[in-house]
């Protein structure tokens, strides 16, 4: 028995009939074809699937597609606007905040929600704020720098690069 859902992803509204057990992340990846959102575990541990749902960062592997009925979603594909990178993307690029890139979409969306809550976070707040997201490549330090870069830029300050 399928359920009809209607939701908005990156500004586009979609309507589909889905199985009640379909995970939101599979809906996003397999039904909508937005493969920038990744899957890294089965236990809500890694955060690779993090998206924004109604402005909050959620792990889309632990939300059913039917629970997102009527919701506004933002995925990595919706971050850049009109060919302009979002400051969080710019920060990750400038500060070498990624290596293999697999955790990066989820990491950026978790970081963005953090910056929306705390525009001027301390390093400790950044590290605590992304503790739901695992990165196995970077050692996190350049991710912290990337988020600091984005924070400065989003506050309208000069986004100076961390010294390398």
């Amino acid at each position: 028995m399928k359920h009809k859902i209607s939701l908005t992803v990156n500004g586009t509204t979609y309507t589909h009939e889905v199985e009640p057990r379909l995970l939101l992340v599979h809906y996003i990846r397999d039904v909508l074809g937005l493969t920038g959102t990744h899957i890294g575990c089965d236990t809500t541990s890694c955060g690779a699937c993090t998206i924004h749902m109604n402005g909050k960062a959620v792990k889309s592997c632990t939300v059913l597609a039917v629970q997102a009925d009527g919701a506004q979603l933002l995925t990595v594909e919706g971050l850049a606007r009109d060919g302009q990178l979002h400051p969080i993307q710019e920060g990750f690029w400038e500060e070498h905040g990624l290596q293999c890139g697999f955790c990066t979409p989820g990491m950026m969306l978790a970081a963005l929600e953090l910056l929306q809550r705390i525009p001027d976070p301390t390093e400790e707040q950044i590290r605590a704020g992304i503790e739901g997201n695992l990165c196995r490549c970077t050692g996190y330090q350049h991710i912290v720098n990337a988020i600091q870069y984005a924070a400065r830029k989003m506050r309208g300050e000069e986004p100076r690069k961390a010294a390398v």
């Binding site: 493969t35 959102t37 990595v76 594909e77 690029w93 400038e94 890139g101």
Partner: peptide, 17 residues
């Protein structure tokens, strides 16, 4: 700056799955 990054930070990279 890394030249592989633009596709990775925009969700435009293609992994096997």
């Amino acid at each position: 700056k890394r030249r592989e990054d633009p596709r990775l930070i925009t969700g435009m990279a293609t992994y096997t799955d």
